[in-house]
Every structure is written in structure tokens, then in C-alpha cells.
Design a protein around this nucleic acid. Structure first.
Lengths: 125, 125
DNA sequence: GTAAATTATGACAGCGCTGTCAGAGTCAAG
DNA sequence: CTTGACTCTGACAGCGCTGTCATAATTTAC
């Protein structure tokens, strides 16, 4: 029987992987890095529930914002619900500001690079 | 006598490093990757001239545009003078277009990330 | 009961540089 | 000739993931 339970209360890693579109490798890696702590069956298989699924979604969200797992791990406890923040944690606030500044800096670098390339391109025409 | 020749015709790696502000490690790496082929003294020391210095400058320029050394290596022969392109090489043209598209894509990703972070930040306030 | 699918752990590789360290030879100045 | 500065080669480490492979145990399906 293929496991396709809707609100899977105890998925094994394969199903969570499918549902979250995150590779099994990465799910194990999240655990390795301390972002996920699934229960285990007697035989040692990982068991994930909705809570873990939610955590993975949060990780994906923050990850898509360019945060490293280490940073995400740090602030995972500050996050709740559908991406809403829990504690008005000052540290989180300043980290967010830093991250944004970092992004702006990277963007600036990319714009510089683009200029250089455009200049080259203009010369090849 | 500290070597500070103006138009150094045969600099050793240390001087080129200073003049180009590129680490010795990287100069050797450029060579390893086939971007630079300095002469050698009898004892095996690398000797660089203005030509090599110019090459390094080009590498820096293209590198600042986000190109990998492999890509730079590929098109180094197409470049001349102060960053002016030599052969109106079609391949170079399309590579430049690709690189620009890549940059735009990265920029787009960064903007997405920024949005996510901004949204978070707004919620912490 | 047996084969196929799934899981477990651990380790190695790769991206594209970049630093650093070790061991040895070379060059310059005093 | 000795010392210190410089160079040589080769190799390992790290960034932050991410894939993959090997070996073994477990579970599932027929």
C-alpha cells in the first residue's frame, strides 16, 4: 500500500521528502544540523509528523531568503504558524536587517558585473 | 635593492602579486588553470612581463563580472588592449548574453529573498 | 517465503576558488 | 659564508550545501 495519507501523522522519510519536495539527503542533513528531530521507530526508522513537515516548510522559506542553515536554526524557534514570527526577538530583527543589507550588497555586486559585461557586449557588436 | 621597476620586464611572482593586488597563491592558480604561462629562470622561478601583467588585469576585469576562470580562459584570446574585444567572436557574444541572463536571474532570486526577509521584518516590528 | 522497495549509517566528491602549511631550493645583502 | 627574504611544489582545509555510492538491516508486497 502506497502511503499517501493526507495529514500523515507518521511519515517515513520518503513520504516527507515527496510532500516537501526536499531530497532525503537534505532531510537527514537538516537533522544532522539540529534543525529537525524526528521520532524513531523501534527499528530505527525516522518518523515525521505535521510538525516536522511544517518545520521543513519554514526551513525552505527562510532558505529561499538566502539564509544558511545555521542562521535558520538559530531563529527557527522564533517562528510560528504560516511564517509569522513569534518572539519580537531583537536579535532576529537585527539579523534580518543584516541579511537584507547582505542581499543589497550582493545585488550591487551583480549590477557592477552586469555593467562590465554590457560594456564588453557593446564592443563585440 | 627592493625591486620597484616601473615597467618591470621580468618580475618575480612577488612583485606581480603586489602590482596586481592578486595573491601569489592565485597567480599560481591562474597558471595551473592555463591562463598564465610565465617564463622560468634557470632555477625555476617564474618570470612575468608587462604582457602577463596585462593578462592578470584582464582576468581581474572578467572575474569582477562574475565569470569563472574556465570561462575567462576560454575567451582570453579574444580580448585585447584596455578590455577591448578582438575577434567579434560569435561564441563570445552568446556567452556574454548568457552571463548577463545569469546575472539577471541571480538578481531576481535576490530580490525574491529580499521580499521574504522584508516581510519577516515587518512582522517583527 | 522471497524478492523488491525503503531505510539506515558513513564517507567521499564536487562546486570555484582561497588560504595555509610543510619541506626544500634560491637569491640577495652584509 | 651566513642569514633572511623569496621562491618552488604539493597537498590539505574550508565555505554550504548536495549528490552518490556502499553495505546492511527492515519492511512491504505478491
Amino acid at each position: 500500500m502506497t502511503a499517501l495519507s493526507e495529514s500523515s501523522l507518521n511519515m517515513k522519510i520518503g513520504e516527507l521528502s515527496r510532500r516537501c519536495a526536499v531530497s532525503i539527503r537534505m532531510l537527514r542533513y537538516y537533522e544532522e544540523e539540529g534543525l529537525l528531530k524526528p521520532r524513531r521507530t523501534q527499528s530505527g526508522f525516522r518518523e515525521y509528523g505535521p510538525r516536522e513537515e511544517q518545520t521543513v516548510e519554514r526551513i525552505k522559506l527562510l532558505g529561499s531568503a538566502g539564509m544558511t542553515l545555521a542562521t535558520i536554526k538559530h531563529f527557527l524557534p522564533c517562528i510560528r504558524g504560516e511564517g509569522h514570527l513569534l518572539e519580537p526577538c531583537d536579535e532576529l530583527r537585527s539579523t534580518l536587517v543584516e541579511q537584507i543589507a547582505l542581499i543589497d550588497q550582493k545585488t550591487e555586486t551583480l549590477m557592477q558585473s552586469r555593467k562590465v559585461l554590457e560594456r564588453f557586449l557593446a564592443e563585440v557588436q
